[in-house]
Nucleic acid binder design. Structure first.
Lengths: 137, 137
DNA sequence: CTGTATCCTTAGGGATACTG
DNA sequence: CAGTATCCCTAAGGATACAG
């Protein structure tokens, strides 16, 4: 939620930017699904509230992790996508998935993806990363 | 702070366990410094409040990310250390540092460490990880 | 010094209504 | 449907006092 800086520690600074319970879930949606609109994010399983979503989209944009574009098919709709800075969070998310895989039971629809990430982590990161970069370019 | 489960998504589950603004800072202290007591954590630069620290230590222990032992030199003191589950968070923290290195200015005392992590990430992780495992064994 | 407890303020967040 | 606004409650968290 972009809280105020607590120390010079880079880890702490990162947490101040996106270390809340919702920001990374929006990032996740933008990374691993085709979700890219307000309504898409709302529909995600966690059930984020409308006001929270709006506030997070705003703070993520202020932090330059995502950017908001005009939707090509609608005047009112925004279209959100990751910036390079946001894309660079990918290795962190991947490691989180790998950790989770060790300590939680994985939903079926994720098993294949995780397996790919486990087999060839760097390759997997590169693949997704390229895919996302192409959207920017 | 171990909030209630919002979905089956492993990423979301992880955040429910340690995705607050303080938990990872305690983990950081246990990983990259010699801090291992209540007073040590209190002294960290971010200035955590006593009640928050106590609550986080408790929830991290409940989640089996850390464990509390008797301090060998004191009857009243607790001694905290990472469990294997906690140690396994290391790659996540390392990726966070590497991301930070790209987008924040690094404090001088961290530059050398980060440089080591950048040069040989896997080796770095293995090194720290072994060091922490030896404390458990 | 290690924690616990209490007080109190603010921020997070759910529900829902509302506007374009 | 996209987003804002309001209401209201609960959780987070700072300050400080207190107990062993």
């Amino acid at each position: 939620m972009k809280s105020k800086k607590r120390s010079e520690c880079p880890l702490s600074c990162s947490l101040d930017l996106w270390g809340d319970k919702w920001s990374l879930l929006i990032i996740r949606d933008l990374m691993f699904s085709t979700k890219n609109t307000y309504g898409d994010f709302l529909k995600s399983a966690e059930g984020i509230a409308t006001n929270i979503l709006a506030s997070r989209l705003q703070s993520l944009e202020e932090s330059n992790l995502i950017e908001k574009l005009m939707h090509p098919e609608s005047k009112v709709k925004g279209l959100y996508r990751l910036t390079q800075k946001g894309i660079d969070l990918l290795p962190i998310l991947v490691e989180m998935y790998l950790w989770s895989d060790k300590y939680f039971t994985m939903p079926d629809d994720l098993k294949a993806t995780i397996e790919a990430g486990k087999k060839d982590k760097d390759g997997f990161i590169k693949l997704i990363s390229e895919r996302l970069k192409n959207k920017i370019a």
